[in-house]
């Protein structure tokens, strides 16, 4: 049996490389933007901040999608499914390595953005921003909320990935069962269900975001974010259990 350490390394490698490639692309885009602004002669101390922060969201979304592809490939390629590990271990390590690599990606982005912000802040003498600094008591609230937001971010990504796997594995399991004719009908049914689920999910997300912003502005009881987080965790666990059962019983790899 493959040890957890080896499995983690093996499943992390490609993802790590992809994240680095993505970061490199982001860096190139930012540099090109800076050069463009400089050529136009509109360069200022805050240009760096706007360029980095402007480019940051797109690679984040792309990163989540790339990782999702990697996760699904693991379940259908012999290269991974032949590894001597239990399905539960395969499934959880797959999600964990994706999450760790996303966190790595996000931390690098966060560091770059904060450097850019600090440059803008200090070259400005801090004058214009100082007025907006929150008072000390609000700072502790801010830290608590920051933790909640980070956890929410992590759990949201896990939820997205596990739902994609859920749909993928259920359709795959169903399509191996049914005669070719009826397969199409069932696929349609599954897609309808999936779309419904996705709508519910996005509703969930919007609800969550609304909560965060409301809490952030009203300084009220933001502990209710944790209720949503726990709810999402429960969904992830249920989907995970079903996904593992699908892997164990029905989901086959692509034939050669």
């Amino acid at each position: 049996m493959t040890s957890f350490g080896s499995l983690f390394k093996a499943m992390s490698r490609d993802k790590f490389r992809q994240m680095n490639q993505l970061l490199a692309l982001e860096l190139i885009a930012t540099v090109v933007t800076l050069i463009w602004v400089a050529i136009k002669g509109e360069f200022s101390s805050s240009t760096l901040m706007f360029a980095t922060m402007g480019w940051a969201p797109l690679p984040s979304v792309v990163g989540v999608i790339i990782l999702a592809f990697g996760i699904e490939k693991t379940y259908t390629a012999d290269s991974f499914r032949l590894m001597p590990v239990e399905e539960t271990k395969l499934y959880s390590t797959n999600l964990l390595t994706s999450l760790v690599n996303l966190v790595y990606f996000t931390i690098i982005q966060a560091v770059v953005c904060s450097i850019a912000v600090s440059i803008a802040f200090f070259s400005d003498g801090g004058a214009s921003m100082m007025g907006n600094m929150p008072p000390a008591r609000a700072m502790t609230d801010f830290v608590g909320m920051l933790i909640a937001v980070v956890v929410l971010y992590l759990i949201l990504n896990l939820l997205i990935w596990s739902t994609i796997s859920f749909v993928h594995l259920i359709t795959r399991a169903a399509s191996s069962f049914l005669p070719k004719m009826r397969q199409q009908v069932v696929n349609i049914v599954i897609y309808v269900v999936v779309i419904f689920l996705t709508l519910r999910l996005s509703g969930f997300i919007i609800h969550g975001v609304a909560w965060v912003s409301r809490v952030a502005f009203s300084n009220n009881d933001w502990s209710q974010i944790w209720v949503s987080i726990v709810a999402m965790a429960v969904v992830i666990l249920i989907e995970g259990a079903i996904n593992v059962i699908c892997l164990k019983k029905w989901v086959e790899t692509d034939a050669n």
Binding site: M1, K73, D78, S79, F80, L82, M83, P84, V85, E87
Partner: peptide, 15 residues
């Protein structure tokens, strides 16, 4: 999972 420790299959490296 246990069988996989005892079998080596010429998989086509599609992963």
């Amino acid at each position: 999972a246990q069988r996989k420790s005892h079998v080596s299959f010429s998989e086509q490296l599609h992963g």
